[in-house]
Amino acid sequence: MSTNKSPVMVEMKNVYKYFGQLRALDNVSLDVLDGEKVVLIGPSGSGKSTLLRSINQLEKIDHGHIIVDGMDISDPETDINKVREEIGMVFQSFNVFPHKTVLENINLAQIIVRKRSKKQASEISRELLNKVGIIDKVNEYPDKLSGGQQQRVAIARALAMKPKIMLFDEPTSALDPEMIGEVLDVMTKLAKEGITMIVVTHEMGFAREVADRVIFMDYGTIIEEGTPEHFFKNPTQERTKIFLNQIL
């Protein structure tokens, strides 16, 4: 666990989110510290993806407050685009831009949002492609890449914005088993660099190795949270035990 002195990077206070009658987030409060790695687990429909997506307002919450790096995104006065610049997001379905090459994928937002020159952007992109291990694909179009490679492009694209927080929404769930490792390796490497990470995943090995804190959600609420040791060895809640028994 990070030291308690770290400032809070994401603060959620009494957050509610409804989809029609369904209460997707039910009075969720959560603080994520600067540099902390949080892994969210839970059955499908438990609200973990909704929680993640509400942090960069891909889902708008109905009640409560979410404060990211000091900016209250539930305040309509806040420029959400400014907040999103600080939050990188990686999706289950990669969502790389199919009409752009790998390099252009990573350059695009740098140039139009961060206002970097093309040369500057390309330098950063190449550096990141090196880091995620696919520099040889720099001029390929995404449809020539495997799922694992596309996801690594997506990670590089998010990192190029130099975000303070990275959100991962089941980044390996759409991947063939042999490609999961290469994506998790990149994420593990990233975790060691001190960036704040919130990860929704079913990869328990990753949670054990990387997480400072594991949070188990069900029915839109946080059922239990704790360090990986506590969480996997001595879960206290009955529902956590049942869930862990099912997946381990």
């Binding site: 960069n56 891909l58 685009n81 400014k82 999103r84 610049e85 939050i87 990188g88 997001m89 999706f91 969502n95 790389v96 831009f97 695009l108 937002a109 139009i112 949002v113 961060r114 997506a154 694209r157 998010a158 914005m161």
Partner: peptide, 10 residues
């Protein structure tokens, strides 16, 4: 695609 673009701050 829209979500990815928006999440990059566009």
């Amino acid at each position: 695609q829209m979500e990815a673009a928006r999440s990059l701050g566009m």
